[in-house]
Write a protein that binds this DNA or RNA. Structure first.
Lengths: 188, 188
DNA sequence: TATAGCATGTAATTAGTTACATGATTAA
DNA sequence: TTAATCATGTAACTAATTACATGCTATA
């Protein structure tokens, strides 16, 4: 029974409570999406697969007119989730960062173009950091009320990562500015 | 003319010099792979496509018995690369990190299991940091000999990122250990 | 002489996104 | 009444990996 990582994302979300595919997607979009994203095109077929495997159980509901199907973990699902959480298999880690890729090839750019690009990179990470800080109050209060604490921790991690990128960019910007000053002492 | 990011990776590598698909792959594996990976299954078809588009030009060679085809940028290819490097389009940024994902769901684990997992996460990043430090002398000496400097900078970035992760994990480990001490003051 | 490395390529598969179709309810 | 939101789902597409087939050269 070898599941995709996204399958475990779903199992994990259901461990947090009975949920529909739509609710899972909404939750992912304000939480794990910064380190593990998922789209409807993955979630709905995966829910069907997991039910087929007996790891989750769906309960259809029409009562309020809207057709919905909320899923829960079965015992087997709980076990599969726990096995994954405690396994020592090497972790899937993947980074695709176009900004750093551009930087790698930027020797051919003028100092001015280089500065502009690194500035853009910094601004993007600043914006992401802000978005994460806007989310923060929710998980924080949840944690303070003795709810799950680790989700909050990973949010803090996300903010710290964005800040790391911002600081790194700033340092490079200063470095490039310093060189420019040496090359052309009086620009004004 | 809308190219994939991986197409720009190839254009960038060819800007650095005439190269075969095999050489591009080898270079990618010791450089950009940590922020933008590529496999043969992408590189060879993409080379054909880029040649079709007139952005690169291949030159077949049998002289040493081995069949090889080395590519160079055309004028159009140079321009496409420069346009990408200086464009202000939002950057593709994607992170898939199974370790952080596990952490997000780890509230249901015992403190001991939690510590073990975060330790594993730290160790993986330590190992990656070491691998990057092992690569470092190459690009550093290249830079010192007035060769390209930005590739070295992105390598430094890679090391800094791994170290950020290691430090973050260490902090969480200490935090969890502190809590354990409060809960069970005398474990031995 | 065997193995590692150079070199090119493809087929099959997996992963993931985007865009659409459908239809209900709720709030402006 | 219109727009936003809830809700499920799929088809088409893009991206990427894996594993294989082929055949050469250089080195141990």
């Amino acid at each position: 029974m070898d599941l995709s990582k996204t399958a475990y994302l779903i199992l994990g979300m259901l461990k947090l409570g009975k949920r529909t595919g739509y609710e899972i997607k909404s939750l992912v979009d304000v939480s794990t999406r910064f380190f593990w994203a998922a789209s409807y095109g993955q979630i709905y077929p995966e829910l069907a697969r997991l039910e087929e495997l007996g790891l989750i159980e769906g309960q259809a509901d029409q009562s309020d007119g809207r057709r919905r199907k909320a899923y829960e973990l079965t015992q087997a699902g709980e076990e599969a989730l726990h096995a994954w959480l405690t396994s020592s298999d090497p972790l899937h880690r993947e980074l695709r960062h176009e900004g750093v890729l551009k930087l790698f090839f930027s020797d051919s750019l003028s100092p001015d173009e280089q500065r502009q690009q690194i500035r853009r990179l910094r601004v993007e990470h600043e914006r992401t950091a802000e978005r994460l800080r806007a989310i923060e109050p929710g998980p924080r209060s949840a944690r303070e009320e003795q709810g799950p604490r680790l989700p909050y921790l990973t949010l803090e991690w996300g903010i710290a990562y964005q800040e790391f990128m911002v600081h790194w960019c700033s340092r490079i910007e200063r470095q490039l500015a310093g060189e420019a000053a040496t090359t052309a002492p009086r620009e004004s």
